[in-house]
Design a protein around this nucleic acid. Sequence first.
DNA 1: TTGAAAGCGCTAACAA
DNA 2: TTGTTAGCGCTTTCAA
Lengths: 345, 345
Amino acid sequence: MDRAPRSGRPAAKRSDVAQLAGVSTAVVSYVVNGTKNVSPETTARVREAIDLLGYRPNRTARALRLGASEMLGMVLPDATNPYFAMLARAVEEATAERGLTVLTANANGSLETENRRLEHLVDRGVDGVVLCSTVLDPDLRPLVGAGIPTVLLNHWADVAGVSTVGVDLWEGARLAVEHLAGHGLDRIGLVIGTNVGHVLDPREASWRHTVARLGRGEGPIVREPFTPWGGYAAGTKLVTGGDLPPALFVSSDRQALGLLRALHEAGIRVPEDVAIVSLDGSDDAAFSWPPLSTVAAPVEEMARVAVAALIEGAGATARHVLLPTLVCRASCGCTPARRATAAAR
Amino acid sequence: MDRAPRSGRPAAKRSDVAQLAGVSTAVVSYVVNGTKNVSPETTARVREAIDLLGYRPNRTARALRLGASEMLGMVLPDATNPYFAMLARAVEEATAERGLTVLTANANGSLETENRRLEHLVDRGVDGVVLCSTVLDPDLRPLVGAGIPTVLLNHWADVAGVSTVGVDLWEGARLAVEHLAGHGLDRIGLVIGTNVGHVLDPREASWRHTVARLGRGEGPIVREPFTPWGGYAAGTKLVTGGDLPPALFVSSDRQALGLLRALHEAGIRVPEDVAIVSLDGSDDAAFSWPPLSTVAAPVEEMARVAVAALIEGAGATARHVLLPTLVCRASCGCTPARRATAAAR
DNA sequence: TTGAAAGCGCTAACAA
DNA sequence: TTGTTAGCGCTTTCAA
């Protein structure tokens, strides 16, 4: 070795422990990993030596030897999006419970970056990958080529060779539309994203289907990106288009935030003039004005299922579809936004 | 080795490349890392072999050999907080530019978890740590003990032995208060967090100082946690306390979100009845209602400085204090919130 | 119950 | 310019 040890006292290694305890290095391994029977006395001696030296096993060496890094990779479109941030945190938690680490990477909304990050994770030797992709059919070749178990999280389409876990968007849209209809609103519009490719988004399909089933009128449909700016643009279109329906199903919370702003700017009241239910259930929906009623994805459960699929999946590919739940706040009209006393002012 | 190779064809290793190219393994290293002169012909042959086999160096082995993982660790209080999410993304970017990877960990607001995550990062052999702690004086022992370079990000107090990079909060508060005063408002209150320990928060000190210097009245001061719920509680107090000042400096965007909600519920208009400037500059401030005027931290710069301090710092400990900038939106009264046409309705 | 030793894939000093 | 080789710290087989 030709490198100076790190500043500070060099970390103790397994052989130091072995020497101090008067055993072979193998025994230290047995004690540390509990993989073999070691006599109580020896165990005690080894434990003591470990404590004395403050020994911590070198996980890099372990990873090299094992051919497994005990790390999971996760790539997100953008951790700055509260919904993905929740997902990331949940995955981290589910992973930590199993003694693994997550290596998180942001694709920043770029497919090219997504691929680069993916390859990077492969190089780092992650044992599995949780991929939240913005595209329906991500490029899985680097993963498949390396034989790395992969699960597509927050995904609703079928993809060959990998497991997916997603929300039942059809059911989510049904929940939203039925709720809005339950408020007696009879024309229900849709604000939805643009990046869904050529496959019909289940949110759109279900919105259309449910509106028809309930015998309500189909309001306008506006397609804009899944961002607050997209939502703002949608709101502006709706307002200037002069065809503002009394109810709107918005396919993401962030869009709803932007929509709300456009509506406010135009002096349109929510929920009095337009009632809104959105979809995601991210934190920021609770502190918009008015607070958003939203169909919430079961984020923790999604994460747990995804991690389990990766670890226990053992090559099986399954499609997990989880049910969302409606969280009522003020934007749909369920709860009065202002306090009674305030309204009386 | 006693383990089956991963499913799929086993990855090519350096010796395969060497064999195919008809050179020694050392030469492959030289070519891959560009550490030594290799003749053009040999280089070409090696490159070809690499492409042919789809060879990718094993970073775990490299890390073990080098004694450096080429990973940086980052621990955050909560990546679900948009401000920290921005910081995390910026750090990831600054790190990627240098060919390194970030291992991110969430402390979930718990000091105990923070320490556990820190130790975990040490075990993983990270070459440096970016620590965003919620406490003023975090436990750096695991880091110092292992001789791992550390920088405290988003920190404003002096801590022995490590570099810090933070925002000039005094200046931030000055900017906010002066701006509010510039709108002709003469009593300026403060909403601030509770978890600052026994040291006087510079935001509070500067608010007090600036208000006095400008000859304005000091409005009420409310202390609640740095969360939307804290902000909501603060707003409720202010409203029911009956001492609502015409201007409020709020020490974090998330608090401001909650505050806004409490104000809305009480039918109080922003900025007409109360003008608000907050501090952070996170994304969600742009889509609240009304959009928040906020003193924005130079997040990208903070991240770059932090990463540079870690990598080029070479044991030096410096204190970097960066300047925030005021971003005016509607909550302070600079911009009319509603469109003129809407106001005319 | 314990130990000796091979070797994970890579780097780089040293020799040729 | 290229090759030989000794490890990095760990796990685990096989033998004692």
